[in-house]
Design a binder for these strands. Structure first.
Lengths: 221, 221
DNA sequence: TAGATTGTTAATCGATTAACAATC
DNA sequence: TAGATTGTTAATCGATTAACAATC
């Protein structure tokens, strides 16, 4: 992946993730009719340092007022603009198994204007069935549909053996962003971004911390 | 969270995640009857730098042989030992909705000896039903069951409004590790580790990269 | 004006990579 | 021995935090 540049400044990847979290906090503040918020309070809501909040925002401009803080509504709109979250995100999902089905009806997506518009499966018994309001298509229609439906992002929820092959097809079809739920490393060209979501790895590191913490508390008792 | 110390060295969080990925690659190599692997090849398999691989492993000891590389089987066992993945991980899941159900049958967990042993829901219509071979319990049995079943980790897949309340209960019951799929920030004591899994945030940053990349290619055409 | 809080610079901390002597 | 590759140190790069003048 090439570096991401905004107004001549290189933006760390982590900043983008946090922007999205700030936006969510601001959304809640707006619902509670809170008009302004300081970097301190915004940081507290997420367990961050206030300097980090100010620095993150400073990559993109000046949004606050010294002595006052940030105007909630304005800042939220600014962030949504930066993230492109003001437009609809058009998503395709490949592999309508248990996890795929769950994602099709994931409430968090709807809230953020992320729309899974098409779903594919290779199982003929699933094809043409309805999944959360959309028709499951045969995987043979993949390339054609990605184009006609102007898909931005592909979600992969297929068995491991099929992941790389489908990735290659999707990339050839012009897709540049893949959210990969399959626990293998995908090889893609440099201009394609893969976001890995890996439950087992997260679980294993949690368990490691747990084990370590247990030892630490044994020492102190 | 206190720092994680191993043999007097502070271990970066990212190292633990990668250890788990190394283990997975080694598992595949073992299945393909490959006996040894160099840091270079292990790095290639994950898109890393070979120095990173050697450095990560060096936190925990010396596992390789100069001129040869690492013995696949040995290294995998060593890593599983470090991660504690040689023991069974006992997990409870709260909230048997779409996502919760999908996780109950997630094949990646079974593969890594991660066992979801109990599941809870507050919906009386779900209670006592079977979910992937286990009986769904009423949420009122939460504290009691976490203890009798000796649960290590709790998975949270409940609506946002209920997440903090349930977190408090779970923490009072002595749980130290939570895998949180609910898109809100949870407040917990310092000795409890929360692992956030947030699809919307990942999706929004993917979309941001996509938008940026599109602009970059516009420039070059 | 006094208090609060921003935006930004400098200092710190942490993580990655390059380089290479040691060694199989 | 010659070639390969480790473990580790030093150099680089990047991200976080502290501090503070500017300013509402």
């Amino acid at each position: 992946m090439p570096d991401i540049i905004h107004n001549g400044k290189k933006i760390p990847k982590a900043v983008i993730k946090r922007l999205s979290l700030y936006s969510r906090v601001l959304q809640n503040l707006e619902l509670n009719d809170i008009k302004t918020i300081s970097s301190q309070l915004l940081a507290d809501a997420l367990g961050y340092n206030p300097a980090r909040v100010r620095k993150d925002l400073a990559y993109f401009g000046q949004f606050g007022t010294p002595g006052i803080g940030y105007h909630v509504k304005e800042l939220r709109e600014a962030i949504r603009n930066i993230l492109g979250a003001d437009r609809e995100t058009r998503v395709a999902l490949i592999g309508v198994g248990n996890l795929g089905s769950a994602l099709l009806s994931y409430p968090g997506f709807r809230k953020q204007d992320i729309h899974i518009i098409v779903a594919f499966d290779k199982d003929k018994r699933k094809v043409d069935r309805d999944a959360n309001g959309i028709r499951i298509r045969d995987i043979s229609e993949l390339e054609k549909t990605l184009n006609t439906e102007r898909i931005d992002i592909v979600i992969l929820t297929v068995p491991s053996e099929e992941a790389q092959g489908l990735t290659d097809r999707v990339v050839s079809a012009g897709i540049r962003a893949i959210m990969n739920f399959v626990p293998i490393h995908l090889t893609v060209p440099d201009n394609v971004k893969v976001q890995y979501v890996d439950f087992s790895t997260e679980m294993e590191s949690l368990f490691y911390y747990l084990k370590k913490n247990a030892k630490i508390s044994n020492f102190s008792t």
